[in-house]
Nucleic acid binder design. Structure first.
Lengths: 85, 85
DNA sequence: ATGTAGACTTGAGTCGACC
DNA sequence: GGGTCGACTCAAGTCTACA
Protein backbone atom coordinates (compact mmCIF):
# COMPACT_ATOMS: atom_id res chain seq x y z
CA UNK A 1 0.00 0.00 0.00
CA UNK A 2 2.76 2.53 -0.67
CA UNK A 3 2.67 6.30 -0.76
CA UNK A 4 1.18 7.24 2.58
CA UNK A 5 3.82 9.97 2.69
CA UNK A 6 2.36 11.54 -0.42
CA UNK A 7 -1.14 11.80 0.98
CA UNK A 8 -1.24 15.59 1.08
CA UNK A 9 0.13 16.31 -2.35
CA UNK A 10 -3.33 16.96 -3.75
CA UNK A 11 -4.16 19.51 -1.05
CA UNK A 12 -0.87 21.31 -1.59
CA UNK A 13 -1.29 21.37 -5.34
CA UNK A 14 -4.78 22.77 -4.87
CA UNK A 15 -3.38 25.67 -2.84
CA UNK A 16 -0.76 26.35 -5.49
CA UNK A 17 -3.26 26.24 -8.32
CA UNK A 18 -5.65 28.60 -6.58
CA UNK A 19 -2.85 31.03 -5.84
CA UNK A 20 -1.65 31.12 -9.43
CA UNK A 21 -5.19 31.49 -10.73
CA UNK A 22 -6.05 34.31 -8.32
CA UNK A 23 -2.87 36.19 -9.13
CA UNK A 24 -4.01 36.25 -12.73
CA UNK A 25 -7.58 37.26 -11.90
CA UNK A 26 -8.97 34.27 -13.72
CA UNK A 27 -12.25 32.66 -12.79
CA UNK A 28 -12.42 28.90 -12.38
CA UNK A 29 -14.66 28.89 -15.39
CA UNK A 30 -12.24 30.79 -17.58
CA UNK A 31 -9.31 28.66 -16.44
CA UNK A 32 -11.28 25.51 -17.10
CA UNK A 33 -12.19 26.71 -20.56
CA UNK A 34 -8.60 27.59 -21.46
CA UNK A 35 -7.24 24.34 -20.08
CA UNK A 36 -9.92 22.28 -21.75
CA UNK A 37 -11.33 20.75 -18.59
CA UNK A 38 -14.57 21.03 -16.66
CA UNK A 39 -15.20 23.87 -14.20
CA UNK A 40 -16.23 21.52 -11.40
CA UNK A 41 -13.00 19.65 -11.92
CA UNK A 42 -11.00 22.84 -11.29
CA UNK A 43 -13.04 23.32 -8.14
CA UNK A 44 -12.18 19.79 -7.02
CA UNK A 45 -8.52 20.26 -7.88
CA UNK A 46 -8.31 23.44 -5.82
CA UNK A 47 -9.90 21.68 -2.87
CA UNK A 48 -7.54 18.71 -3.19
CA UNK A 49 -10.35 16.28 -3.91
CA UNK A 50 -8.89 15.33 -7.29
CA UNK A 51 -5.35 15.22 -8.67
CA UNK A 52 -4.13 16.17 -12.14
CA UNK A 53 -2.27 13.85 -14.50
CA UNK A 54 0.78 15.23 -16.29
CA UNK A 55 -1.32 15.98 -19.37
CA UNK A 56 -3.73 18.04 -17.30
CA UNK A 57 -0.76 19.77 -15.67
CA UNK A 58 0.55 20.91 -19.04
CA UNK A 59 -2.90 22.16 -19.95
CA UNK A 60 -3.18 24.13 -16.73
CA UNK A 61 0.27 25.60 -17.20
CA UNK A 62 -0.57 26.70 -20.71
CA UNK A 63 -3.86 28.17 -19.49
CA UNK A 64 -2.12 30.11 -16.74
CA UNK A 65 0.72 31.25 -18.96
CA UNK A 66 3.27 29.54 -16.77
CA UNK A 67 5.35 26.39 -17.25
CA UNK A 68 3.69 23.34 -15.74
CA UNK A 69 7.10 22.63 -14.24
CA UNK A 70 6.73 25.78 -12.16
CA UNK A 71 3.46 24.54 -10.69
CA UNK A 72 5.12 21.27 -9.82
CA UNK A 73 8.15 23.03 -8.40
CA UNK A 74 5.97 25.13 -6.12
CA UNK A 75 4.03 22.07 -5.05
CA UNK A 76 7.18 20.09 -4.41
CA UNK A 77 8.78 22.91 -2.40
CA UNK A 78 5.73 23.25 -0.20
CA UNK A 79 5.49 19.50 0.16
CA UNK A 80 9.13 19.20 1.25
CA UNK A 81 8.65 22.04 3.70
CA UNK A 82 5.65 20.37 5.31
CA UNK A 83 7.33 16.98 5.24
CA UNK A 84 10.18 18.02 7.48
CA UNK A 85 7.87 19.79 10.02
CA UNK B 1 -13.59 16.17 -25.61
CA UNK B 2 -10.74 18.68 -25.28
CA UNK B 3 -7.02 18.14 -25.25
CA UNK B 4 -6.31 16.55 -28.58
CA UNK B 5 -3.21 18.74 -28.67
CA UNK B 6 -1.92 17.00 -25.56
CA UNK B 7 -2.28 13.53 -26.98
CA UNK B 8 1.43 12.78 -27.05
CA UNK B 9 2.36 13.95 -23.60
CA UNK B 10 2.36 10.42 -22.25
CA UNK B 11 4.76 9.19 -24.93
CA UNK B 12 7.11 12.10 -24.33
CA UNK B 13 7.05 11.63 -20.58
CA UNK B 14 7.82 7.96 -21.09
CA UNK B 15 10.92 8.85 -23.07
CA UNK B 16 12.03 11.28 -20.38
CA UNK B 17 11.45 8.80 -17.58
CA UNK B 18 13.38 6.05 -19.33
CA UNK B 19 16.27 8.39 -20.00
CA UNK B 20 16.53 9.50 -16.40
CA UNK B 21 16.26 5.94 -15.14
CA UNK B 22 18.90 4.66 -17.55
CA UNK B 23 21.31 7.45 -16.66
CA UNK B 24 21.10 6.27 -13.05
CA UNK B 25 21.51 2.60 -13.94
CA UNK B 26 18.30 1.71 -12.18
CA UNK B 27 16.17 -1.26 -13.20
CA UNK B 28 12.44 -0.73 -13.65
CA UNK B 29 12.00 -3.00 -10.68
CA UNK B 30 14.26 -0.95 -8.43
CA UNK B 31 12.68 2.32 -9.53
CA UNK B 32 9.22 0.91 -8.94
CA UNK B 33 10.20 -0.24 -5.49
CA UNK B 34 11.67 3.12 -4.52
CA UNK B 35 8.73 5.06 -5.91
CA UNK B 36 6.23 2.73 -4.31
CA UNK B 37 4.53 1.64 -7.51
CA UNK B 38 4.25 -1.57 -9.49
CA UNK B 39 6.95 -2.67 -11.94
CA UNK B 40 4.48 -3.18 -14.76
CA UNK B 41 3.23 0.33 -14.20
CA UNK B 42 6.73 1.73 -14.76
CA UNK B 43 6.87 -0.31 -17.95
CA UNK B 44 3.57 1.17 -19.09
CA UNK B 45 4.67 4.69 -18.16
CA UNK B 46 7.86 4.34 -20.19
CA UNK B 47 5.88 3.13 -23.18
CA UNK B 48 3.38 5.97 -22.86
CA UNK B 49 0.46 3.64 -22.19
CA UNK B 50 -0.24 5.20 -18.80
CA UNK B 51 0.27 8.68 -17.38
CA UNK B 52 1.35 9.67 -13.86
CA UNK B 53 -0.63 11.88 -11.51
CA UNK B 54 1.23 14.61 -9.66
CA UNK B 55 1.56 12.38 -6.61
CA UNK B 56 3.19 9.67 -8.69
CA UNK B 57 5.43 12.31 -10.26
CA UNK B 58 6.74 13.36 -6.86
CA UNK B 59 7.34 9.74 -5.98
CA UNK B 60 9.27 9.14 -9.19
CA UNK B 61 11.33 12.27 -8.65
CA UNK B 62 12.21 11.22 -5.14
CA UNK B 63 13.09 7.74 -6.40
CA UNK B 64 15.35 9.14 -9.11
CA UNK B 65 16.92 11.71 -6.81
CA UNK B 66 15.74 14.54 -9.00
CA UNK B 67 13.01 17.15 -8.55
CA UNK B 68 9.74 16.08 -10.10
CA UNK B 69 9.64 19.57 -11.57
CA UNK B 70 12.70 18.67 -13.62
CA UNK B 71 10.94 15.68 -15.15
CA UNK B 72 8.01 17.91 -16.02
CA UNK B 73 10.29 20.60 -17.39
CA UNK B 74 12.01 18.10 -19.67
CA UNK B 75 8.66 16.74 -20.80
CA UNK B 76 7.29 20.20 -21.42
CA UNK B 77 10.35 21.30 -23.38
CA UNK B 78 10.18 18.26 -25.60
CA UNK B 79 6.46 18.69 -26.03
CA UNK B 80 6.82 22.33 -27.09
CA UNK B 81 9.55 21.36 -29.50
CA UNK B 82 7.43 18.71 -31.14
CA UNK B 83 4.37 20.95 -31.12
CA UNK B 84 5.90 23.59 -33.32
CA UNK B 85 7.20 20.98 -35.81
C1' DA C 1 -18.70 33.04 -9.95
C1' DT C 2 -17.96 29.05 -6.53
C1' DG C 3 -19.14 24.80 -3.61
C1' DT C 4 -20.85 20.57 -3.60
C1' DA C 5 -22.68 16.27 -4.92
C1' DG C 6 -24.39 12.20 -7.44
C1' DA C 7 -23.90 9.37 -11.41
C1' DC C 8 -21.44 8.39 -15.19
C1' DT C 9 -17.19 6.88 -18.49
C1' DT C 10 -12.47 6.44 -18.99
C1' DG C 11 -8.02 5.85 -17.33
C1' DA C 12 -4.56 5.30 -13.21
C1' DG C 13 -2.37 1.82 -10.71
C1' DT C 14 -2.25 -3.31 -8.96
C1' DC C 15 -1.65 -8.23 -9.34
C1' DG C 16 -0.67 -12.50 -11.61
C1' DA C 17 0.99 -14.75 -15.40
C1' DC C 18 3.75 -15.85 -19.42
C1' DC C 19 7.34 -14.94 -22.85
C1' DG D 1 15.69 -7.77 -16.15
C1' DG D 2 12.05 -6.23 -19.42
C1' DG D 3 7.56 -6.59 -22.56
C1' DT D 4 2.99 -7.50 -22.60
C1' DC D 5 -1.57 -8.62 -21.36
C1' DG D 6 -6.04 -9.47 -18.98
C1' DA D 7 -8.70 -8.45 -15.14
C1' DC D 8 -9.42 -6.00 -11.31
C1' DT D 9 -10.17 -1.62 -8.08
C1' DC D 10 -10.43 2.99 -7.46
C1' DA D 11 -9.62 7.59 -8.91
C1' DA D 12 -9.49 11.09 -12.99
C1' DG D 13 -12.47 13.89 -15.46
C1' DT D 14 -17.47 14.98 -17.29
C1' DC D 15 -22.17 16.51 -16.94
C1' DT D 16 -26.21 18.10 -14.61
C1' DA D 17 -28.21 20.37 -11.02
C1' DC D 18 -28.97 23.11 -6.94
C1' DA D 19 -27.52 26.17 -3.20
Amino acid sequence: MANTQFTNVGIIFGDVLRRYRSERNLSQEELAHRAGVDRTFISRLERGIRQPTITTLLGLGAALGVPAAELVKATEAEWLKRAEG
